[in-house]
Design a binder for these strands. Structure first.
Lengths: 148, 148
DNA sequence: CCATTTTATATAAGGCATGTATATAGTTGT
DNA sequence: ACAACTATATACATGCCTTATATAAAATGG
């Protein structure tokens, strides 16, 4: 039985933040990447959504626009993304994923998965279903928090 | 039906890292804290486990010992934790949560929960059960990754 | 159609975060 | 006692992130 009481909901919120960040840091660290989580998230956004403006990326990841500008600068310097201009709006900087960026993202995912796989394989199919659904729910929750 | 194929497992691992970090950052940012996620995680560890050494904290959070020393320095400077010595081992620095630290942790949790609660309240009880179980599983997975 | 306001991005400055390498001090084993 | 090991701290470099501000372009409203 899951508590729907305010206390239960609040405790769940705190635990999701806490354990979500801990798991992500632990797993990505074990994968031995040089790249920050925010940089990898930016690449993943571009792969999933196609070209995005700097401001859109910042909004999606809930960091400030200057922070995303800096992240894009580093990714651009390493050739993982490219900046273009929007023909309809000369103010905008349209960021696109390069071939090298897609490859780096793929390599990270493979390395991370290789580290996490043994732990996941120890779970039953119910728990795998829970985690699969939870990944979707976390995305929806973050989307909703960003809409406000 | 949840895929138990290697591809399904690997994709799940990548998604959990990606969405876990995004949700945690988004929610904590919306809570408007000054404190970093690692600082809050350190406080949470101390509350849950009692006094811990600097090295144990670093291991649990999968950051280097110097990084945790720096985090503890900042928390100590703000009076949220205290350093003590282990009578059985004079090398060790035993970190303990202060009253002010527990209060700050509680305030963060309340602020964060207040932001996330509306989104969680929109979910059905099945999804709440999924997230509750997922929080436990993420903790176990991170623990297991840290054991190696 | 120009002046004002708004929007998109970039730059600047400061502090936190985090890694590698190393120093210091204490413990353990022989 | 000496050597090896362990726990933490320090030094240094780089990256991350925020607030405040600058620059340039677009939208608005007389």
């Amino acid at each position: 039985m899951v508590s729907r009481s305010p206390e239960g909901i609040d405790q769940l919120a705190a635990r999701l933040i806490s354990q979500g960040s801990r798991f992500a840091r632990t797993a990505s660290r074990r994968a031995g990447t040089q790249r920050s989580l925010i940089a990898l998230r930016a690449l993943a956004n571009l792969q999933q959504e196609g070209d995005l403006r700097v401001g859109e990326l910042a909004l999606r990841e809930a960091i400030t626009q200057p922070a995303m500008t800096a992240a894009v600068n580093r990714l651009e310097a390493d050739g993982l993304v490219a900046r273009g201009t929007d023909p309809a709006d000369a103010r905008a900087a349209v960021v696109s994923l390069t071939e090298a960026g897609a490859e780096e993202l793929h390599r990270f995912r493979m390395r991370a998965a290789a580290k996490v796989r043994p732990a996941l394989e120890g779970l039953g199919k119910d728990d795998l279903a829970v985690l699969t659904r939870a990944a979707d729910l976390l995305q929806e929750l973050a989307d909703r928090l960003n809409q406000e």
